[in-house]
Design a protein around this nucleic acid. Structure first.
Length: 577
RNA sequence: GACUUGGUAGCUCAGCUGGUAGAGCACGUCCCUUUUAAGGAUGGGGUCCUGGGUUCGAGUCCCAGCCAGGUCACCA
């Protein structure tokens, strides 16, 4: 494997080599036992300076200030950063000062991982510092790290390019400590939710990601193939139909934190794979589920922030119970001033046109209501709000409303202008369910790529009998965005989906040249002379190439004989003809 | 998918109406015995995203493409 390396990387590789020559293994195998963390020392030492008389810690070097025989560095471990003090005569008590002069000063770089042994003290400047008596190289870093500096809360040279931050998340985590914290908080959201559900004795389960029939949501799937079974499988878009089968099987409450996959556009609210928590509880209805959602989210927010009132973007959002509740018709009445509940499809369409909501002929009454709501109401719902009683056309898995014609028993919680959960009284009438699937099939025949497909085994399960059940889906990523106050889903996913990096590597170029009979030592250089492929080389003037190579040889102090002009000409002729 | 902004050194960015590519940090060398984003001096480092075009001459102007961000559309 060859790769283009910058000057700084070359210097690090040289240092690596020198370490080996000094008999130091830059990548040792042994356990390095640690008895303290940076954050722990900074927290406890001020109260009791008799602590930490003998500490051993390990981490990455983040900065160095070398002044003759004394040096300061910063060590970063999982808990934070702490200053290190190195003194030549303490690192090297004997005559041989190379461990300090050579190894520490010349062969260690920012980014290297070391272990240190010493004691904690406070410098004249008042900074808690580890006085290092001994250090061990645990890993030599070959790439320069972005160096971010900070003073009084002001950050200098921050590592901010989103593309690099997402593609190289490890760098982001190393140099932007608040990013690490975001993911800790995300983990706490999930843990808090899990604790809540386990406290109620619901069973955490796992259901298939690979599904022969995808269902449970309106979305386009990813398609894959199983060789042995010779069958098409889909990555799940939801796990709803599997969890309901478990309710049929007799569990009273099941939930799953599920990775779902949807083959759709990407945006700051959409990643092709995302996490959803789905919960199904027997003998309950959607009104009961609304209370559960309120209680659960309020608890999570309290666990995370210690208060229910939190900043989100330019708003302050209060999750304290009870949340506002509107039916969909009420919400539309509230935001447009018009009661549309009695309108037929034609009246509704002209009303939509009137208020500037785009419609098309394929939209039925339910879709029109949904469009009006999405356009005129949803963006205004900043404080957590339940919207209830959705049109039946949009909800093929929800039970018909007990008293309102044309609606289903469904609610969503909207917060910060976005849906954060979706729930209903689950449809358990098998005849009705089959009819709803048939309607979906009809939509599919008319070309709706997101229409649901009919799952015969799921119907068989429902025919066996499912108790009345309340079901819930919460988008974990979207909830995390709100609770950690990040505007983009990419900020709460470690590795958001990105288009693959183009991979024209130096080795490809080199191989192309060597296979044309050009010696390897020159093939390596040619890209630097501006010839990225054989074609561009052959189009060039041989004398110019010869001169460039000689120039580069001198510039790079290459220890190889200069090429002969006739050799260069020979490389550039078409050796095939 | 549409519109829009951006892509210049390892990182953050400047570069005017087109005229020899710059700064800070990082890196190398030398000096300095406790510094606080920063010691002093000095030096090296570039496929200016890619490919075409205009031009005597393109980082800069034009066209096409790639990648990313934002807005919208699609979408839970």
């Amino acid at each position: 494997m060859n790769q283009k390396i910058s000057e700084q990387e070359a210097i690090r590789r040289e240092a690596l080599q020198q370490l080996r020559e000094l008999g130091i293994n830059p990548y040792p195998s042994e356990t390095y036992d640690v008895n303290a963390l940076a954050g722990e020392i900074l927290e406890k030492y001020p109260a009791d300076d008799s602590l930490f008389g003998e500490v051993q810690l390990a981490g990455r070097i983040m900065s160095r200030r070398i002044m003759g025989s004394a040096s300061f560095a910063e060590l970063q471990d999982d808990s934070g950063r702490i200053q290190l003090y190195f003194n030549r005569d303490e690192i090297c008590p004997g005559e041989d000062k190379s461990m300090y002069n050579t190894v520490f000063k010349r062969l260690i770089d920012i980014g290297d991982i070391i272990g240190v042994k010493g004691f904690v003290f406070t410098t004249r400047m008042g900074e808690i510092t580890v006085h290092v008596k001994e250090f061990t190289i645990l890993c030599k870093s070959l790439r320069p790290l972005p160096v971010v500096k900070e003073k009084d809360g002001k950050v200098y040279d921050a590592f901010t390019d989103p593309e690099q931050r997402y593609r190289q998340r490890y760098l982001d985590l190393i140099v932007n400590p608040e990013v690490k914290d975001v993911f800790r908080r995300r983990a706490r959201v999930i843990q808090s939710m899990r604790d809540f559900l386990l406290d109620r004795d619901y069973l955490e389960v796992e259901t298939p990601v690979l599904q022969p029939i995808y269902g449970g949501a309106a979305a386009r799937p990813f398609k894959t193939y199983h060789n042995k079974l010779d069958t098409t499988l889909y990555l799940r878009i939801a796990n709803e139909l599997y969890l309901k089968r478990l309710i049929v099987g007799g569990y009273d409450g099941v939930f799953e934190f599920a990775k779902d996959f949807r083959n759709e556009g990407m945006s700051r609210f959409h990643n092709p794979e995302f996490t959803q928590m789905e919960l199904y509880v027997a003998y309950k209805d959607y009104a009961w589920m609304m209370d559960l959602v309120e209680e659960m989210i309020e608890k999570i927010v309290l666990d995370l922030h210690g208060t229910t009132l939190i900043p989100v973007g330019e708003h302050r959002i209060d999750f304290r119970r009870p949340w506002k509740r509107y039916t969909m018709y009420e919400a539309i009445l509230h935001y447009t001033g018009t009661d549309i509940s009695g309108m037929d499809e034609a009246a509704m369409r002209s009303f939509a046109d009137e208020i500037g909501v785009e419609t098309d002929e394929s939209m039925g009454r339910g879709k029109l209501i949904d469009e009006i709501f999405g356009e005129k109401c949803e963006p205004h719902l900043i404080q957590p709000t339940f919207i209830t009683d959705y049109p039946i056309e949009m909800s093929p898995l929800a039970k018909k409303h007990r008293s309102k014609e044309g609606l289903v028993e469904r609610f969503e919680a909207i917060c910060n202008g976005k849906e954060i959960c979706n729930a209903f009284s689950e449809l358990n009438d098998p005849i009705d369910q089959r009819a709803r699937f048939e309607e979906q099939l009809e939509l599919g025949r008319r070309g709706d790529p997101e229409a649901m497909v009919l799952d015969e085994d799921f119907l068989r399960a429902i025919e066996t009998g499912m108790p009345p059940t309340a079901g819930l889906g919460i988008g974990i990523d979207r909830l995390a965005m709100i609770l950690v106050n990040k505007p983009s889903i990419q900020d709460v996913l470690f590795f958001p989906q990105m288009r693959p990096e183009s991979s024209v590597t130096a080795s490809d170029e080199k191989d192309e040249f060597t296979s044309a009979g050009i010696p390897e030592e020159w093939a390596k250089i040619l890209p630097q002379a501006g010839y990225s492929n054989l074609k561009s080389l052959k189009e060039a003037n041989p004398n110019k190439v010869f001169n460039q190579l000689c120039g580069l040889r001198k510039k790079m102090k290459l220890d190889i004989p200069a090429p002969k002009p006739e050799d260069v000409k020979k490389w550039m002729q078409d050796e095939n003809g």
